[in-house]
Simulated scan of single mutants.
Amino acid sequence: MSSSDIFTGELIGTAVLILLGGGVCAAVTLKRSKAQNAGWLAITFGWGFAVLTGAYIGAKSGAHLNPAVTLGLAIDGAVKWSDVPLYIGSQMLGAMIGAGLVWLAYYGQFKAHLTDPELVSTLNPAEGMVDQTATPQAGPVLGIFSTGPEIRNVVQNLVTEIIGTAALVLFILTMGLTKGLATSGTGTLMVALVVVGIGLSLGGPTGYAINPARDLGPRIMHALLPLPNKGGSDWGYSWIPVAGPLIGAALAAGIHKIAF
């Protein structure tokens, strides 16, 4: 596999993954969106279809679309370590591009949402009134770009990301035990369904990043894009959806080497 195959496959595949995955989050979150308040099922299936689409598009590179997957495959010996930086760099750039495309696609909805006085104002507890001049609460649309915990507990949040990613990467590594599955289109479909399953089963605590590029690339774009009243990018939490998936991938690769 050439370097150009890796770069174009991972760049475009990850960009489409984030475009469709971030797009469903925007559709469910933003005012004046036809899908507003569609709920968690819409988000989990939307991300599953995003994985499916991005993976087929990125097939020429192996369609990792995820630094954790790349790390797991490298530890298992299926990917050369010398190719790992190119894979991860391409995935990060693709994720940033995809997040930018979500902003463009929902530009009017972002503007309507972030300039709504009911959403960007804070309550003055002393007077019991809405203060129109108050600083907006942090991150009113950050969830469109990146993940965050429902209960902020470093150990639990990190462990949740480790477990979810380990399940994903272990499935990918063990697909080779079923003859022809890893190299067929059916294998790509199965990975997408596993992502849906992880979202439904384990996504509640942290939003299931299970992919450092999926979280960090769009978080950087949230910080850079000219979004009015956007609040903070929650950099204090940002290391968890990076470290957790990488640890989970390494754990999955170790289990695969020992058990299979």
Score class of each variant (00 low, 15 high):
47 W>D: 00
229 N>T: 00
67 P>S: 06
156 Q>L: 15
57 I>C: 07
226 P>A: 07
89 G>L: 10
239 W>L: 12
250 A>R: 05
22 G>P: 03
167 A>Y: 04
236 G>S: 12
20 L>E: 06
176 G>Y: 07
34 K>G: 13
74 A>T: 08
121 S>D: 06
54 G>R: 02
131 D>F: 06
115 T>H: 14
3 S>P: 14
185 G>A: 08
239 W>D: 10
94 G>N: 05
206 T>M: 01
127 E>F: 10
97 I>A: 03
233 S>I: 11
221 M>Q: 07
132 Q>A: 15
88 I>F: 07
256 H>Q: 10
227 L>W: 02
123 L>G: 08
78 A>P: 04
188 T>D: 12
174 T>Q: 14
193 L>S: 03
31 K>L: 13
139 G>M: 12
217 G>P: 04
165 T>K: 03
112 A>S: 14
16 V>E: 07
85 P>E: 09
62 G>C: 08
208 Y>K: 00
98 G>A: 07
118 E>L: 14
25 C>M: 14
255 I>G: 04
96 M>A: 10
86 L>Q: 05
30 L>T: 04
35 A>M: 11
233 S>C: 14
147 T>N: 08
246 L>T: 04
150 E>L: 15
232 G>Y: 11
196 V>D: 00
27 A>V: 00
136 P>F: 04
260 F>P: 02
94 G>P: 03
246 L>S: 04
200 L>Q: 09
74 A>V: 03
53 T>V: 15
255 I>Q: 03
88 I>V: 12
211 N>C: 05
15 A>T: 05
19 L>C: 03
166 A>P: 00
129 M>T: 15
17 L>H: 01
21 G>S: 12
154 V>R: 14
195 V>H: 01
73 L>I: 12
231 G>V: 00
28 V>I: 13
24 V>K: 00
219 R>D: 00
74 A>S: 09
